[in-house]
Design a protein around this nucleic acid. Sequence first.
RNA 1: GUGGCUGUGGUGUAGUCCGGCAGCACAUAAGACUGUGGAUCUUAUAGCCCGGGUUCAAAUCCCGGCAGCCACC
Length: 364
Amino acid sequence: MLKLINTDNQARTGILKTKTRNIETPFFMPVATKTAVKYIDNFELNKIGIQCVISNAFILSLKPGIRLIKKAKGIHKFSKLNTAIFTDSGGFQKIRESFFIKSTDKGVLFRSPFDGKKHLLTPKKLMNIQNTLDSDVAMVIDDMPLHDESKAATIKAVERTHKWAEECIKYHKNKKQLLFGIAQGGLYPDLREASAKFISSLDFDGVAFGGLAIGEPSKQTYKMINSQVKHFPENKTRYLMGVGCPEQIINAIDAGADCFDSTFPTQNARHNTLFTSKGKLVIKNSKYKNDLKPLDKNCDCYVCQNFSRAYLRHLMKAKEPNALKYLSYHNIYFMNSFMKDIRTSIKENRFQKFKKDFLKNYKK
RNA sequence: GUGGCUGUGGUGUAGUCCGGCAGCACAUAAGACUGUGGAUCUUAUAGCCCGGGUUCAAAUCCCGGCAGCCACC
């Protein structure tokens, strides 16, 4: 359950209580697929103030395997991650050609990228994996329709998602672990609404918008969010899966979302794009060659406090591994302060102004 | 001085024998990235050492320069 603290129109701030943490919402989770955020030390996450990360149950079950993690007494002790941890089921891997084989009524058939072996991921199996990993929050396995799928195929995927959602509840045995449901519906508002209603009717600790930000125009994303959010319970955390672009996050919070995860900030950092209070900054661009200013003069992260744009560009051009570390650090730090500022603005009932100012300054 | 070999984008090279749209990698420049398969993907800029000849057509064949490397004197 989500304990609401304050609301500002649709935007909300609250506390999501998990077994290891009281997470302040809205919050952003960096992706730590294999229990590590790429190029960022696990302990650095605490110093930055990251409340929660998300790992991938299916991928961890392949490597290093749940037996080892069980032996290590769970995902927290194994990794020493001292944040709350969500585990994703692996349903999203449907989007990766190298993993996905097909969906059946029983589950999703995947091929391991490590040894080519086939794995039929059923709700029962995924719940067992996540119960054993002992994360704070488990996600159901869903059947995510792709955007080029017909309405009939999307209906089929939604039906499976609903059936599997019920089975996940049935097989979820870890009492201290929360379980979140996922609503689907492709780009069809009527299916989105029906799915949101159904998932809301089940006994989940939180609900998610699934299958968005996978290539559709932003306008569509917001339309789908709006069609679902009104059917989601007030007192449950609403998780917009896969969204990590600052503008989309602030708009989604305005629509009533509480929780986000994405590889977007870390992947962008590795690909030269930094987030700053003035907007996107592409560090490899030649205009920064002799620029001795910090990435963002309004940022107090140790990268902005110490290094210049010219130096960071130089490190990237020279393919120095530390460049990826510094840039990833900055983007994660930026996301964390961004979320913190949003929470404060909601508490102080000035979110609308904050959003307006942010979007005005944030150049694409 | 004589003989041989070699000159292709910024760099490294393929193509030369047997003439037919000059290709690749890196570098440079710009864009993309959203529930991660560990620096990816897309696009752009940029070249036949110089001069002449043969030919419908020359990076390619012929002649003459220039430059570099090697061997001999």
